[in-house]
């Protein structure tokens, strides 16, 4: 098999979900009730809008993640050819990691790794 299978699997997955949902819509009973289509909030009507700007406490983490995730992508090719590159590659990656860990330590010291 080759990469065509990707499309195949995509189609099969869509088919699986789509078929089941359509089947359920056909066979499952349905009754109209205005209470039922309310959003669940422990039986009390929701007050105010729900799609509000959410105060996430991990904004800094998200930025750090961006940095580190890109680094991960860079490390993958290195990991594959590590054996061929030998010591030179190791020293290079050491320097690379040194800078990364330094950055992480800096963030740590600056209390950026505290959820607020």
């Amino acid at each position: 098999m080759n990469q065509d299978a990707l499309i195949l699997f995509f189609i099969v997955a869509v088919f699986l979900v789509g078929f089941a949902i359509v089947f359920a819509y056909i066979v499952a009973p349905s009754s109209v009730n205005p209470q039922k289509s309310e959003a669940y909030e422990c039986g009390i009507p929701t007050k105010g809008i729900t799609w509000l700007q959410f105060n996430v406490g991990y904004y800094l983490f998200a930025i750090l993640f961006l940095i580190f995730d890109v680094e991960t992508v860079f490390i993958f090719p290195w990991a594959v050819v590590m054996k061929q590159m030998g010591m030179v590659g190791f020293i290079e990656i050491c320097i690379f990691f040194f800078i990364l860990i330094l950055g992480l330590l800096y963030a740590w010291k600056k209390h950026a790794l505290i959820w607020e």
């Binding site: 995509f10 997955a13 499952a28 349905s30």
Partner: peptide, 29 residues
């Protein structure tokens, strides 16, 4: 399969129905 599919009045219908597709596609791939 035989349970009623309740749709929420204020929900974003498109995304609401899209989400199960995405989780299944991701795992199937």
């Amino acid at each position: 399969l035989l349970k009623e599919l309740i749709s929420i009045k204020q929900a974003d219908k498109l995304l609401f129905n899209l989400a199960p597709f995405i989780v299944i596609i991701a795992s199937f791939l």
